[in-house]
Design a protein around this nucleic acid. Structure first.
Lengths: 127, 127
DNA sequence: ATAGCTGCAAACGGTTTGCCTCACA
DNA sequence: TGTGAGGCAAACCGTTTGCAGCTAT
């Protein structure tokens, strides 16, 4: 565990959810020389050893968080707001896919998208 | 409706699901001068007027298809296989989110990810 | 000596932008 | 004659690669 790696891990913990770019900015506050390449390499490494995970929120860069920080993400493609739903929200779907086709759903890796309550009155802007 | 736009629409219909790049290749088979910029602009336009839609399959470029061609996509992040599930798969989730928080889920815009039956024996490769 | 980690710069895929030209109402 | 569509090149964001230098065995 090098200093850079510790900083990346700390940044992810501090930020909760963050894109590689955001993590980089955070790390560079205490160590400006750290390169974004290192961020990517470290995130990749930590994901492989099961320390971190990433979620695609739909649009741009993926969002990294700690492995244990698990829930289903629901994002509004009008305003971009991300909310978190309990893991069991998709239990029914998981069971159905498993028995129908043996497919093992990873409910934390995807985000569900749609339109949030407040944006339904507002004209949509799309993702 | 210009010739280029017609070609783009035809290409999407022929291909069923396709990335902008694939659509471009298809269009250029009959009209080599068509630029990828035009593809993007046309896809964007047709999406705004409700002719087409796009779905994020997780990793790279989004996949465009006709608006009426609706279903839930389930992709294996080990082998990349994409399968289609009936729209009502997520009915329960849709209802729950609607009554809990007024969130209107768009079940066609996301893909569900996980591991397919055949890949569960194979060592995972991740997305 | 050796392996592994880092930084840097360059390449990459996918997408958007600006600008200039053209066709057509 | 002016508005919009298309082509081209350049910029863009997010990410990966190759390479060289450093560090800690």
């Amino acid at each position: 565990m090098t200093p850079q790696r510790q900083l990346v891990l700390d940044a992810v913990r501090d930020l909760g959810h963050a894109t590689p770019e955001q993590i980089c900015t955070q790390v560079q506050r205490s160590a400006p020389a750290v390169n974004i390449t290192t961020i990517y390499r470290t995130l990749d490494l930590m994901e492989r050893i099961g320390l971190l995970r990433h979620t695609h929120l739909g649009h741009g860069a993926p969002s990294y968080s700690e492995e244990k920080h698990q829930h289903v993400h629901v994002v509004c493609h009008s305003c971009g707001a991300v909310s978190e739903a309990p893991l069991d929200l998709l239990d029914g779907v998981v069971g159905r896919l498993r028995s129908d086709s043996g497919f093992e759903l990873d409910v934390t890796h995807l985000a569900l998208t749609g339109t949030c309550h407040t944006c339904q009155s507002t004209p949509p802007e799309d993702e």
